[in-house]
């Protein structure tokens, strides 16, 4: 993404100190633009506040009963645990740190939500499952092959650099062209972040699998970091499949679960996630609601997403329990 002219221009805009907080209105403007591009009636109705996206999306799909069900599901929100919201596609920017309200140092990874838009809505009727296909970043027309270009043009969204799909429940569907911003997530909630880990090359068993290695002395010769035995003798007469051996390490998809969202900056479209996130700086990562944290452990989440434009930076609330409290 670093080579894309458009991306660089937008990043330069980010650097202009939050662009005087006017970009908070970007969501609404973007929404209007998307509606204009598609001439989407669903969008205009939703923007007028008549019905929720989910109801409209389902109504458009031609199932009136399901719309009522979706509305009911919307009421119970994510508390019931039945609603699954979409995630986001983001760029890993790098790491920094801050101090929380207690004065405890918090290591943070900064994620940039770069023009993340809905490209395709997958429904039970057509595809057999409900999901949202999201695109993020930007590409010039000559950089994209024909089929993908046609896909974007048919959807009426700008050409995207990265495409990813998130399975959602029908009440969390969003219309094509909807721009998802960092304010989709709430400061204080937990997210799972998936990305491609940094490639480590060909590594031995000690680094790759955490084997203990062998003694430094006592007659050991040239086998200090060797694996040792790989199995028994004539019975079974083979090395079992899946035996941990040296080989390529890293460069695979890794998900880090239960990362706390420390700060949400909707103006610059940045997410500050506590701790480490897989991959290099500049890599794409997929961020979604944590699957292992219950609703009681997190602040309420907007379903299907935050529709009004958020312009204020929010920080996770002060945690309970003094971390410096001295226990007798």
């Amino acid at each position: 993404m670093l080579r894309a002219g458009g991306s660089l221009a937008r990043l330069a805009g980010l650097l202009d100190a939050a662009a005087a907080s006017t970009s908070g209105r970007g969501l609404l403007e973007g929404a209007a633009a998307a509606a204009a591009v598609r001439g989407s009636s669903i969008w205009q109705q939703a923007a007028a506040g008549q019905r929720s996206y989910a109801q409209l999306a389902l109504a458009e799909a031609g199932s009136g009963g399901a719309a009522a069900a979706a509305a009911a599901a919307l009421q119970q929100s994510i508390l019931g645990g039945s609603t699954r919201r979409t995630g986001l596609v983001a760029v890993k920017v790098g790491m920094t740190q801050e101090w929380d309200a207690w004065g405890v140092r918090v290591p943070l990874t900064v994620l940039w939500v770069d023009d993340c838009q809905v490209v395709q809505v997958k429904t039970d009727e057509r595809e057999g499952y409900t999901a949202l296909q999201l695109g993020a970043g930007a590409k010039r027309p000559k950089q994209l092959r024909g089929s993908l270009r046609g896909h974007f043009e048919a959807a009426g969204v700008p050409l995207k650099r990265k495409v990813a799909e998130f399975r959602v429940t029908p009440d969390a569907l969003l219309p094509v062209g909807h721009e998802l911003r960092a304010s989709h997530f709430v400061a204080g909630q937990f997210v799972d972040v998936a990305g491609t880990s940094i490639g480590k090359g060909f590594q031995g068993v000690m680094k790759r699998w955490g084997f203990a290695g062998q003694p430094a002395s006592h007659g050991n010769s040239l086998a200090h970091r060797a694996a040792g035995s790989t199995g028994a003798c004539q019975d079974p007469g083979k090395v079992f499949k899946g035996k941990k051996m040296p080989g390529r390490m890293g460069g695979e998809r890794v998900t880090v679960q239960n990362c706390k969202v420390f700060r949400v900056d909707p103006v610059r479209n940045l997410l500050y996630v506590q701790g480490q996130v897989p991959g290099h700086k500049g890599n794409w990562v997929l961020v979604k609601d944590s699957v292992k944290k219950s609703a009681a452990q997190q602040p309420p989440l907007p379903v299907p997403t935050l529709l009004e434009a958020a312009a204020e930076v929010t920080v996770a609330p002060k945690s309970e329990g003094d971390p410096y409290a001295y226990r007798e």
Partner: peptide, 16 residues
């Protein structure tokens, strides 16, 4: 220095 590094620097300079 890449633009992304600059962004991190900008963010850090705000809390320094």
């Amino acid at each position: 220095m890449t633009k992304l590094q600059q962004l991190v620097q900008t963010i850090q300079s705000e809390i320094v």
